[in-house]
Write a protein that binds this DNA or RNA. Structure first.
Lengths: 217, 217
DNA sequence: GCTGGTGTGTACCGTACGGTACGGTACTAG
DNA sequence: CTAGTACCGTACCGTACGGTACACACCAGC
């Protein structure tokens, strides 16, 4: 609905990044009810500057989402190790990382605002999807394919295998968090759930030499 | 934030139900940007009547969610059949039913508005959660426990087993739909995905006589 | 000093929307 | 016929918010 010519630019200035940080904090605190006035006040800048930099309110939100997405680069983690233990370890690490991300306050806030506006302004949702679920797929697939190449995994469709992994990891966690349930996910729970998900995934897609592990509680 | 004394009342009049139907339609069309004026206009009633019946805007939304939740009662489906084929069939049916529900326009719209308001007004989210994910758990758990009692399933924690089933069925479908992706789920795809999820669940939690089915693509 | 550019703070405008008030209409009861 | 009730349609009020305009401060470069 606007030019927002600077939105594609990945490099924001120091001051601008500070503003985006403020937006993120406000988003976490108040959801999508943040106002331009509130942003300007807390960031100690003028509304006129906000509009000059980001075009309009949508541009500001999009810039915030993109900037946040750009800085949560997790470790690349794709390597040619072909040990079953190493594969299992990688999967568990990915699972734990993903659970940590989706249970973070910033992820919850960003997903909420993107979903809330998905009907009217799908741009935000597309960006969140791209830097969330699809980015995770792109990062995990090489691991799965390496596992298959090493004879540790057996499947036809990498995408389908990834989606199963996704389901085993996320289960009902994200939807419950987004809907406002306060299920406290501490480090130990995440670690345990991640291990369970990795184990289950190997049960489903691993080559059946001897069964790796049975379902944890 | 309001009394809304009539909200708990499960029985709405014919006219009131027509109004709720209008709200639902507007929610599907416009997301949470529906206005009381728009509701009144399309429902051919006065705003004053809306406020008289439902208290305020939140009351109207809550009434809509509750009314919609109350009428999507799926078949009970809990019976003492203990055949493996019957159990598998039940699981598949549940999975297909669930996928159909979460991919429906009404479910997407309702979840979106509940999530969008979850930060400010958690009531809606709690209701959606209660009549969605938790209702599904209550309906499926007897089936799982019957399967375990019949020696067809093996697990310790029914809740954990259900959450795995939930993950295998839903995977990334719901979050992608909520974020605005238009992944067309036709009847055949749902049926196939449901069968795959049921098969995978049995692989994970079934008694290992002979392996039931391998992962479909 | 002067000038231009960048940014702050604030006043302001237009509008959209939640909520209320009020007049008018149809129907029922007595 | 009158009174009461329930509702429709609409005008209205207050406010919140997106977006703009303007006055002032600071800081170059010259």
């Amino acid at each position: 609905m606007h030019e927002t010519p600077t939105t594609d630019e990945p490099g924001w200035s120091e001051r601008q990044r500070a503003v985006l940080e403020v937006v993120l904090g406000l988003l976490v605190e108040q959801g999508d009810r943040l106002t331009m006035t509130a942003v300007a006040r807390r960031a100690s800048c003028s509304k006129e500057t906000l509009y000059k930099w980001f075009g309009d309110r949508d541009g500001l939100l999009i810039a915030t989402v993109q900037w946040q997405a750009a800085r949560v680069r997790v470790a690349p983690l794709d390597g040619p190790d072909l040990d079953l233990a190493a594969l299992s370890e990688r999967l568990e690490e990915y699972a734990a990382n993903w659970l940590t991300v989706i249970s973070s306050q910033t992820s919850i806030a960003l997903n909420r605002v993107a979903i809330g506006q998905a009907a009217a302004a799908p741009a935000l949702g597309a960006i969140v999807l791209e830097h969330g679920r699809f980015a995770m797929g792109r990062r995990l697939k090489p691991v799965l394919e390496a596992g298959r190449a090493a004879g540790l995994l057996s499947y036809d469709d990498t995408e389908a295998a990834f989606r199963s992994f996704f389901g085993l990891v996320a289960r009902d966690v994200q939807i419950r968090l987004l809907l406002g349930e306060a299920l406290g996910l501490d480090e130990a729970t995440i670690r345990r759930d991640a291990a369970g998900a990795a184990s289950q995934f190997l049960t489903l897609y691993g080559i059946p030499l001897q069964t790796a592990g049975q379902t944890g509680s």
